[in-house]
């Protein structure tokens, strides 16, 4: 696999797979992430996958104790290790992605901006819901907040600009649109997204082994639900 390595300060290395956001690059990121997940190198602290990169964090002190013989500086040594590791990595067919269904109660008090998004695109609110729920989405990466998915695949026909003045508080689990992106806020945050609905599913689950409902590589389907369904699902998940 052809990659470029860049230092991120004195204890991390960015593995770069390309300079754009494409499915092809995403698959490489996924492949290497899953290999790193099962590769228990002593010197590795953790890794962070993103759109076109995977960043690997290391402990220079531990590395220096491993390199006593060849006396390579820690950064160079880790680069060599990574190159060796990556040269054996092939772009095999990755296992089929998980498909996660996210029930969403659109509009009403949960989606105060649904009307705006509809008007902005010359559509009815019902049509916006249809288009949003009909899309095939892929989780490119998790970042910004715990469990927050950067999703690809929203149809441009429901794109909408951010608010000029961000809201101070957006309730957790709110579904929003910003430009050509859609996303779900896992925790209460300020933000300028257009809010169109809310899911009863908690995205951030600090008490679980994997604290994020979604993982990079997942496929997502949004499913419109009624307020009654929302309430009973919310009760269940608490």
């Amino acid at each position: 696999m052809k990659v470029r390595l860049h230092p991120l300060g004195d204890n991390a290395i960015i593995i770069e797979f390309g300079e754009e956001i494409t499915i092809d690059i995403h698959k490489k990121v996924q492949r290497v992430s899953s290999l790193l997940e099962n590769h228990s190198a002593q010197w590795m602290i953790e890794f962070i996958p993103a759109f076109s990169t995977v960043t690997v964090f290391y402990d220079p002190l531990l590395v220096s104790s491993l390199t006593k013989q060849d006396r390579l500086p820690p950064y160079k040594w880790v680069c060599n290790e990574l190159q060796r590791f990556l040269s054996s990595a092939t772009i095999e067919e990755t296992p089929a992605p998980r498909v996660v269904e996210i029930p969403v109660c659109y509009g009403g008090e949960f989606g105060p901006d649904l009307e705006f998004v509809a008007e902005h695109n010359g559509l009815t609110p019902e049509k916006v819901i249809d288009i949003h729920a009909d899309g095939d989405y892929i989780v490119y990466m998790i970042g910004f907040a715990p469990g927050f998915p950067y999703l690809g695949g929203m149809p441009e026909t429901i794109a909408a600009p951010r608010r000029e003045s961000p809201r101070f508080k957006i309730p957790p689990r709110t579904v929003g649109i910003a430009g050509r992106q859609t996303g779900i806020y896992p925790i209460e945050t300020p933000g300028g997204w257009r809010l169109i609905g809310r899911t009863p599913l908690p995205l951030f689950r600090p008490d679980q082994n994997i604290p994020s409902l979604l993982r990079a590589g997942d496929k997502i389907k949004f499913k419109p639900i009624s307020l009654e369904e929302y309430k009973s699902l919310e009760e269940e998940s608490q």
Partner: peptide, 27 residues
């Protein structure tokens, strides 16, 4: 394109004023 940052990363948003990322930085 968004990518990982770390403790001590100095990034510059479009207003030109640098921000040094500290312990509670985003990932």
């Amino acid at each position: 394109i968004s990518e990982a940052v770390s403790f001590g990363t100095v990034q510059v948003p479009s207003n030109g004023s640098p921000i040094v990322l500290m312990a509670d930085r985003q990932t």
